[in-house]
């Protein structure tokens, strides 16, 4: 009788056990679980490729993203110019690579910084409660009630377009969501008995809420970080498309998309906006996959 696949698997496990390769394999549970999630791994691979390509852009492309070359205007994709050239003869592929640097920096940077602010405030206020919580809650509500676009308009008209203005606005409007998430988790966690036990030892508030409680509150926050990374990249693209985001001379994914405002380009020169649009979508999708994978793998009560 032929061995079933289950038997074969079992034989393999037994063999490995005899060779004692089990004990030498010491990968953390979280990493293992993450690696078992195929979509997340795929996301991570593409995410890494895009980031590496952006970082090593000068090595991958012989062109300067800013150099105007009027002899090769609006050329379709070819072996010289993979994604073609734009209206001033700049290589689109190079611009996508260099644009990725700024866009990813803005997206990830604002998401992580707003998460740091949100978590720091949310954990403490949520755990402590009382008037600290009330004040923090009201402040976050004030920030969240401002429409982003109006804040951007305000700041741009006062200080001019700049990358850091944009990030500052993203953080100001973004930390409220993270804060609420962290606070809500802490509110339910602080009634758990292990927290009471830690309190009965008289441990400091910081140790209790940042060391012992935060890891249990982290999984929804992790997902939110990835989601807001994606959102910030899209918002940056949107604002730059409207000419309100990063100054036009800096290549970002949004600024490259900006040319699609011209109906002529939109209709006739698809390579100027098509590839970059796809890159944005793929990147955002990958980040979301990673977020999902992280959530599943960091949840300690899920086994596997």
């Amino acid at each position: 009788m032929a061995k079933s696949s289950l038997d074969k698997k079992f034989d393999q496990i037994r063999k490995r056990e005899e060779e004692k390769t089990f004990s030498t394999k010491k990968r953390s549970r979280i990493v293992n679980k993450f690696l078992n999630n195929r979509l997340a791994v795929l996301g991570l691979i593409i995410f890494t490729i895009i980031i590496l390509a952006s970082i090593f852009a000068p090595l991958l492309s012989p062109y300067d993203p800013m150099r105007v070359d009027l002899r090769s205007m609006r050329q379709p994709p070819s072996f010289d110019h993979w994604f073609g050239t734009d209206s001033t003869g700049r290589d689109v592929f190079t611009r996508v690579l260099f644009g990725g640097r700024v866009s990813i920096f803005i997206g990830l940077g604002s998401a992580i910084l707003s998460a740091v602010v949100g978590i720091a405030v949310g954990c403490y206020a949520g755990y402590k409660g009382g008037w600290i919580d009330v004040i923090a809650l009201r402040i976050s509500e004030i920030f969240m009630s401002f429409p982003q676009i109006i804040l951007v308009l305000l700041l741009v008209s006062i200080t001019g377009q700049s990358l850091f203005n944009l990030m500052a606005i993203f953080i100001l409007t973004g930390w409220g969501g993270m804060y609420r998430l962290a606070r809500a988790r802490m509110l339910s966690l602080r009634e758990e008995e292990y927290v009471q036990a830690l309190r009965s030892f008289g441990l400091s508030t910081f140790t209790i809420c940042y060391k012992h409680m935060l890891p249990n509150a982290l999984s929804p926050i992790m997902v939110n970080i990835t989601l807001s990374t994606a959102m910030f990249i899209l918002t940056e693209a949107g604002l730059s498309f409207l000419g309100l985001g990063v100054p036009l001379n800096i290549p970002t994914w949004g600024n490259i998309l900006n040319v699609a405002q011209d109906i002529l380009i939109l209709q006739n020169y698809w390579w100027m906006w098509g590839p970059v649009g796809i890159v944005i979508s793929v990147f955002v999708l990958c980040v979301n996959f990673i977020g999902d994978g992280l959530r599943d793998s960091t949840d300690p009560s899920q086994q596997g």
Binding site: Y194, A197, L198, T207, H212, P300
Partner: peptide, 19 residues
């Protein structure tokens, strides 16, 4: 609910001892 799911037993018991 009396044990912290994110820490090993040693991990969650060592802080009071440290303190």
């Amino acid at each position: 609910s009396s044990l912290n799911p994110s820490f090993t037993i040693f991990g969650s018991l060592q802080d009071p001892l440290k303190k």
